[in-house]
Design a protein around this nucleic acid. Structure first.
Ligand SMILES: [Mn+2]
Ligand SMILES: [Mn+2]
Ligand SMILES: [Mn+2]
Ligand SMILES: [Mn+2]
Lengths: 219, 219
DNA sequence: TAATTTTTTTAGGCTAACCTAAAAAAATTA
DNA sequence: TAATTTTTTTAGGTTAGCCTAAAAAAATTA
C-alpha cells in the first residue's frame, strides 16, 4: 500500500474530476486553477506522483491517472461523500455547509472507519448533492443526468444533482426551492442569453444559463 | 483567533498532559519522549509556540502553557474524546481501537462540527476510557480517581478510568474482565514486586504493579 | 513558414518540521 | 569546589510543498 499525503490526495482528486472521460489528459494549468496554486508547483507535484506510479505523465502533454491513481482518487471521493451524508443526515448540517468540512475529513485514513460509517448511514447511494457514492471496492456508477441547459422545451424531469458545490450556489437553490427531488418542466429557452424559464411547483421561475448548467436532471 | 498546525496542536496537548498540576514546568526531554521526537526539534517548536503566546518559555527552564495555550489544549482534548465516544457508541469500535484514529480526528477544525457531534452523542460526560470530556466553554472536571496501586487492603471501588491508552493494555484489560464499571476489592498487596491481588466477580486475580498503576478506581 | 502568444518546465528560494553533531548550561557526584 | 554527567540549545542540513522569474516548448496567428 502506497501512502499519500494530504496534498497528493487533493491533486489526485482534482485530476480525476478534471478528466470526465478517462484517458483524456489533464493540463498543468487546469490543475493549477482547480487547486488555486501555480503551474510551477503543479509540475513539481506531477513529477512526484509519476514517481509513485499514480499518474502517467509525459512532459508538456498533460496527465492521466494510472489504475492505482484512479482507485486512490475514487477512495477519497468515497470518503468525502460519506462524510457529507453523515453531516447532513446525522448532525443536521445543511447541504450548503458540508463541502469544506468534507474536504478535510476525506483525508482521514482508516478503512475500518469509513466502512463502519457506511454501515451506520445505511449504505447511502448518493451524497447530499446527488453525487453517487463509490462502494468499498471502488466501483462508482455515474447516473445519467442532464443539465437543465441541455433540456428541450416541455421536457420534464427530477432535480437529482448539482455540478457546483459552493455555499453561495447551493444557498441560492435552497431559497429558490430548487432542491433535490423536485420536479421541473422547461417552459421556455431564451436564446439570447441562455437563460431558462422553468415550471416548479406550478410557478414559473427564470434561471440564468450559469444556474441552468449546474442543475442536473433525471429525465 | 490564532490558527495552530497539526504539529503545534500535538505539542500543546503533550505539554498539557505532562503538567498534571498547572504551573508545573515541563522539560524539553519529556516532550521529546512523549512525541517520539528529538530534543533539538522540541526546542525549535518551543520557540515558535512562545512567539505565538501559547507557552511560557524560558531557556533551560522548561515550559508551561499560557491561558490561551491551555484553552487550545483542552479544546483538542475535547475533540479527541468526543470522537472516541462517537467511534465506540455509534460505529461499534472497541475501546482499544479508537485512540490512534482520534489522534487524527482531533485536528479537524470546526466548532459547529464538534458541538453538533456532542449534541448527537447526547452530551457524554466521559470518553470510553473514563476520561472526562471538557464542555464547549473549555471547562474540564477531573474526577478524583485513585490507581489500584494506591488502594489499601480490603478497600473496594469501581473501575472508572485508565491511565494508559495503548491497544495492548486495553486489550489485556478486556480479556481479564477489567472493564469500566466493574467493582473490585483489594485482597492483598505483594510488597516484593508491587503486584496486587484483587477480587473481581468473586474470583481472585493477580495484576502486576504496572497494571495496578494504570487502572483508576472511584473509591 | 515566420512571428507571436500561450503553456509548461526549470532554476533558485522560502518556510515548517524534522534530523545529527557540537557547544553551552545545569545538575550531580566526587 | 572541581570534575563529570545530563540536559538543553545552537549550528547546519534535509524534505515537502509552495513561490517568482526566466527559459523552453507548443500552439496559434499572420
Ligand atoms: Mn481535500
Ligand atoms: Mn458532495
Ligand atoms: Mn493528534
Ligand atoms: Mn480516551
Amino acid at each position: 500500500m502506497i501512502t499519500t499525503s494530504f496534498t497528493e490526495e487533493n491533486y489526485l482528486k482534482a485530476i480525476f474530476h478534471l478528466s470526465p472521460q478517462e484517458a483524456e489528459a489533464v493540463s498543468t494549468n487546469a490543475i493549477a486553477e482547480a487547486l488555486q496554486t501555480k503551474a510551477a508547483s503543479v509540475t513539481d507535484m506531477l513529477k512526484k506522483l509519476a514517481d509513485k506510479n499514480l499518474i502517467n505523465y509525459v512532459k508538456y502533454q498533460g496527465v492521466t491517472l494510472t489504475d492505482i491513481g484512479q482507485q486512490a482518487a475514487i477512495n477519497i471521493i468515497r470518503k468525502h461523500r460519506l462524510w457529507e451524508v453523515f453531516l447532513v443526515d446525522k448532525l443536521n448540517f445543511k447541504w450548503d455547509e458540508v463541502h469544506e468540512l468534507a474536504e478535510d475529513l476525506e483525508h482521514i485514513n482508516s478503512t475500518k472507519l469509513i466502512d463502519s460509517l457506511e454501515v451506520f448511514l445505511g449504505f447511502p447511494k448518493v451524497d447530499p448533492h446527488g453525487d453517487p457514492i463509490p462502494d468499498k471496492n471502488g466501483v462508482l456508477k455515474e447516473p445519467a443526468l442532464v443539465p437543465v441547459s441541455k433540456m428541450n422545451i416541455n421536457q420534464t424531469g427530477i432535480i437529482s444533482g448539482v455540478k457546483e458545490h459552493s455555499t453561495l450556489f447551493l444557498n441560492y437553490l435552497e431559497k429558490a426551492g430548487l432542491v433535490l427531488g423536485k420536479q421541473v418542466k422547461v417552459q421556455d429557452l431564451i436564446e439570447f442569453d441562455g437563460s431558462v424559464i422553468i415550471a416548479l411547483d406550478k410557478q414559473l421561475l427564470t434561471i440564468s444559463r450559469d444556474v441552468a448548467k449546474n442543475i442536473l436532471i433525471a429525465v
